[in-house]
Amino acid sequence: MVIRVIILNYNTVELTLQCVDYVLRQNESNFNIVVVDNGSLEECYQEIKLKLPASVNLIRFENNAGFAAGNNRGCGRIENLPDPDYYLFINSDAFLTEPGTIKTLSTALTNQSQAVAISPLVHTTSNSVPVRFQIQVRRILSPGWLVICHSPILRRLPFARQWHHHFIYRDLVPYSENIYPVESINGAVFMIRSDFLHHIGLLDEGTFLYLEEIVLGEQIRREGRICLLHGGVIVPHIQGATTGNQRGKLSKKSFNFFIDSEAYLLKKYHNYSNICLRIIRKMRLFEFFVKSIRIRFINL
């Protein structure tokens, strides 16, 4: 069994090097590492090229193509590397601090024939909530409920709160060390069967950033397969380090990426009309305005 670890680098030299170091400490003999530089500044690329261990493969692309397209660049045939049985995608700000993480995830995935992807518990380190109470993965809902559950306003209304809790698997919290069958993965760290990923044409590159987990979960559901969440493995994640977002602050650029991804998901996988998408976009802009005012008021 061969595992290819793919780490996407975008101007995060020190974090990427730290991520690689933790992977190498796994002391497994059946994996290789590919770092994809996704359009970093030239000086950042030259620095990581100089500092990466010789055993790590580095692929350079001039432009930042986004999360899905960037990770896809590490898949498929690469000279001098064996074709993998599994791909393990890791954000450069997530660290495999527990020995044996790769083996534990691959063993669990191998033992469940219906499953095609698996994630560990991802500990968002900036979150004061204990990791076993943090949001990990999401259910694949009907598009109407998905729109409501993505709304920071509507999901708090009495009629929607129960659905939002269902969406984020609140019924399983606190997570134990069990392995849970779930409907999506955690995009920060996940392993997927290579034959399945190539079967669906790799990660859907229609989104630049955000909702990749929901898109992949939708594809997996339509193929009649499932995902797994391994409660016995914890991976710390410095959320926002790769995107530049800070917890508790709003970024208009990131927000636009989100609504673009939402529109793509609804149009491609649920046949939403352009009129409906324009209405949803206007609703999201209003929500962004309200949330911005609220944050400003709190920070006064």
Rank of each mutant, 00 (worst) to 15 (best):
M1Q: 05
Y10M: 07
Y10I: 05
E14R: 04
T16W: 04
L17Q: 12
Q18K: 11
V20H: 00
Y22R: 07
Y22I: 02
V23G: 04
L24I: 14
E28Y: 05
V35H: 04
D37H: 00
G39D: 11
S40T: 11
L41D: 15
E42M: 06
E43S: 10
Q46D: 15
E47K: 07
L50G: 13
K51T: 09
N57R: 10
N57S: 10
F61C: 12
A65Q: 14
G66F: 07
F67V: 13
C75W: 06
G76H: 02
R77Q: 11
E79P: 03
N80Y: 03
L81G: 00
Y87D: 00
S106C: 09
A108N: 13
L109S: 00
T110Y: 08
Q112G: 05
Q112Y: 07
P120R: 01
T124H: 15
N127Q: 05
V129C: 02
Q134A: 09
R139A: 10
G144W: 11
L154M: 13
L157A: 13
A160F: 08
W163S: 14
Y169C: 02
Y169Q: 13
D171H: 12
L172V: 03
Y175H: 05
Y175I: 00
S176L: 02
S176E: 15
E177Q: 11
I179Q: 04
Y180D: 03
P181W: 06
S184P: 08
I185L: 12
G187I: 05
V189T: 12
D195W: 03
L202W: 09
L202S: 02
E205T: 07
Y210Q: 08
Y210A: 10
Y210L: 08
L211H: 02
L211N: 09
E212W: 04
R221K: 13
E223A: 05
L229K: 15
H230M: 07
T243C: 07
N245Q: 13
R247V: 01
F255N: 15
F255Q: 12
F257Y: 15
D260S: 11
Y264D: 04
I275G: 05
I280Y: 12
L285K: 10
F289C: 10
V290P: 08
K291H: 11
R296C: 14
